[in-house]
C-alpha cells in the first residue's frame, strides 16, 4: 500500500481487480479541460450578438477560461449553437461537429437552438432544436439569453466536465 499511505482518500480510488488508481490524475485532466475551453466562433442569428457581448468588455468570459475563439472547428472544444438551425444548415452543423476533436461539448443557446423558438409552431424550414442533429450538453433558455445566462450555462458545463469520470468506479 505504501504508495498511497497518508493520501487524502478523495484522491485515491480502488479499481476492482487492478491496483490503485490516483484520482488526482483525473482531477488534473478534468480541471485542465474545464478551464481552457476554446469556443468555435459560430453565430447563426440574434443570439450570436449576445455571445459576442458575453465575450466583450462588460461580461468578459475570459475570466472563466473561454478567451480563445477558435475560427476553425479543428481546434475548438466547445460549439455554442447560437441561433436558428435551418434545414439548409443541417449538413454544415453536423460537419462542423464532426470536425471538432474529442472531447467536445455543445451548448444550445436560445430557444431557437432548444426547440425552434418563435418559428417552431408552423415553420417549414427551421429545425426544431439543435439536439435533433448534434448531442447537446447544456441548454440556455431565452430569446436571446442574457450574457449572464450564457455565462451561467458555461459554468455549468465546467462543472459537468469536472465531474466526469473516465477511470473506473470503485467497487
Amino acid at each position: 500500500m505504501g504508495l498511497t499511505d497518508g493520501l487524502d482518500e478523495r484522491l485515491v480510488r480502488k479499481v476492482p481487480g487492478a491496483p490503485v488508481v490516483l484520482a488526482a490524475a483525473e482531477w488534473a485532466i478534468n480541471a485542465g479541460r474545464a478551464n481552457a475551453l476554446w469556443t468555435l466562433t459560430f453565430g447563426l442569428r440574434c443570439c450570436a450578438m449576445e455571445m459576442m457581448a458575453a465575450g466583450a468588455a462588460r461580461y468578459d468570459w475570459a475570466r472563466f477560461g473561454f478567451e480563445v475563439p477558435a475560427a476553425s472547428p479543428r481546434r475548438a472544444d466547445l460549439m455554442i449553437v447560437a441561433g436558428t438551425v435551418t434545414t439548409k444548415m443541417v449538413p454544415l452543423v453536423r460537419r462542423l461537429y464532426a470536425q471538432m476533436a474529442e472531447p467536445k461539448y455543445v451548448i444550445a443557446m436560445g430557444s431557437c437552438a432548444i426547440s425552434g423558438g418563435p418559428f417552431a409552431y408552423d415553420t417549414y424550414s427551421v429545425v426544431k432544436g439543435a439536439d435533433k442533429i448534434v448531442p447537446v450538453d447544456i441548454y440556455v433558455p431565452g430569446c436571446p439569453p442574457r450574457p449572464e445566462a450564457l455565462l451561467d450555462g458555461m459554468l455549468k458545463l465546467q462543472k459537468k466536465i469536472k465531474q466526469s469520470k473516465f477511470t473506473a468506479e470503485a467497487a
Binding site: 447563426l44 442569428r45 441561433g83 436558428t84 435551418t86 439548409k88 444548415m89 454544415l92 418559428f119 408552423d122 415553420t123 417549414y124 424550414s125 427551421v126
Partner: peptide, 14 residues
C-alpha cells in the same frame, strides 16, 4: 444566400 431562411414572411400570414 438562404442558410438562415426561416420563412418569416409566410409565418406572418398565420
Amino acid at each position: 444566400v438562404g442558410y438562415i431562411h426561416s420563412g418569416v414572411e409566410k409565418l406572418c400570414e398565420n
